[in-house]
Design a protein around this nucleic acid. Sequence first.
DNA 1: ATATGTACCCCTTAATCACACGGTACATAT
DNA 2: ATATGTACCGTGTGATTAAGGGGTACATAT
Lengths: 131, 131
Amino acid sequence: MQIMIDIDSNTPMFAQLIEQIKKAVQTDSIKPGDGLPSIRQLANDLNVNNKTVAKAYQLLERDNVIQTKGYRGTFVHPDAKANCSFDLNAWVFEKLSETIETLRKAGATDSEIRIAFGDVINNRTFKEKEA
Amino acid sequence: MQIMIDIDSNTPMFAQLIEQIKKAVQTDSIKPGDGLPSIRQLANDLNVNNKTVAKAYQLLERDNVIQTKGYRGTFVHPDAKANCSFDLNAWVFEKLSETIETLRKAGATDSEIRIAFGDVINNRTFKEKEA
DNA sequence: ATATGTACCCCTTAATCACACGGTACATAT
DNA sequence: ATATGTACCGTGTGATTAAGGGGTACATAT
């Protein structure tokens, strides 16, 4: 498995990592149980920050594509191939599309929608905007 | 009907205008058919920009609280009092809360949700991020 | 000692946005 | 002429964010 990172790409580096590792799983380039390079090592090889690799690994583990076993390292998840096919971000995109379409049809301004969205995601209860 | 604007308030000026006009309707301080000050005049009285007043008026008209009759001026909507009770922004807030809660429970990161939201509301089709 | 994932603290960069303002112009009708 | 709502061009300010980096530390186990 070889990973290439394009610094000048429009897609962020951690996303490139996720893409390529998923592709490696889908093409059987790496199989369940295989060990992945450690965060520090991969970061060093690619000349990126540890946190960038760690971010990619965390998201991959959340999606059950890889598994981290503490001090023992990181491994490909048993059901990696199946879990690769589900794209959480695509699903999030769809759900938000539906909701926003509803709000727009109700006459809400994009600006209003954006503000309400910001309030919700920052756990600001409605109309409670302090100084 | 008297309107007061607090420049230093945390709530934007156009929102203050909406609040006070709605309150004036709810307290029968102004009644359906009554004429409202013109945009330019109210802006001048309050020492704010025309566009700030215009924005408030447009939102009030969308919510059927007031009615603009072109060159004849702006008037209180026949069903103003009833339409005042419905707060579109509160409804938008609720709808977004439900959706975001669903997404969070599915494991989506707030950052991921924010990015997807930005893509949707800017009419960027999924994963089509050009340079 | 060494390596593992992980969790904090800090920072810079570029981008986006709400809010408000300024000006200019238009068709409408008085 | 004058006033109405409306639409378009622009400006600037302050806030928020993603992405990435730098550093330091921890418990775990070899």
